[in-house]
Design a protein around this nucleic acid. Structure first.
Length: 195
DNA sequence: CGACCGATTGACT
DNA sequence: GTCAATCGGTCGG
């Protein structure tokens, strides 16, 4: 049960993305603890990546992407959804990894309550098998943008690594540009992986 | 300014 | 499978 150190996040983004698989996302809300295993991610490489929010430089919205690795970048999209990214690399490097899916471990009933829409349609898989779904379940929104992942509110803990043979790669989902890159990584066969 | 559209989801045919 | 929801960012005039 060890919190990942800053040095985990400041490494090259594609490396961090693959290593995030299998790590446990922990969210403390007062006395409530929510936790889940990360099973699907996508890397966004800032200035090198036309699909990244930071491709055209720093703005008010994407400024957290330029922070030192180990912060949380939360953005609002489609007029109703939030998505959470782990910022990677050194200060000034606008790279991040989108957390696309987690397998719930702890606080599952609280997560279910946090989800909007008809609760009877939220089963154990759909509770957190997508980037905006897990943000609802973990109560991550505007206020969590910029959160330091070395703090007490939101952090990651190490687990035994996923074997390389169990990690799949594919093009990223839902983007129009840079589809040639296989920058989506997921745990093969895991039920919470989206699609 | 105005028009367009997005790192998505849930509802419905 | 198709489509609306809903709003802030981005880009063109």
């Amino acid at each position: 049960m060890k919190k990942l150190p800053r040095s985990f996040y400041t490494r090259p983004t594609l490396l961090v993305a693959k290593d995030l698989l299998g790590k446990i996302l922990v969210r403390q809300i007062g006395k409530i603890v929510l936790a889940g295993t990360i099973v699907e991610v996508e890397a966004y490489l800032g200035s090198k990546d036309p699909a990244s929010h930071a491709y055209r430089g720093k703005t008010k919205r994407n400024e957290v992407m330029f922070h030192e690795g180990g912060h949380l970048y939360v953005y609002f999209t489609y007029g109703m959804h939030f998505c959470a990214n782990v910022v990677t690399g050194k200060e000034g490097v606008a790279e991040a990894v989108l957390i696309r899916a987690v397998e719930p471990l702890e606080g599952i009933e609280a997560m279910r309550k946090n989800r909007r829409f008809k609760a009877n349609r939220v089963d154990e898989v759909t509770i957190s098998n997508g980037p905006a779904k897990l943000c609802q379940a973990f109560r991550i929104g505007r206020e969590q943008n910029g959160t330091d992942l070395l703090g007490a509110e939101i952090f990651l803990i190490a687990e035994k690594p996923i074997p390389k043979s169990s990690i799949g790669a594919s093009p990223r989902i839902g983007i129009a540009k840079a589809k040639e890159h296989l920058w989506r990584f997921f745990v093969k066969g895991n039920r919470w992986v989206s699609r």
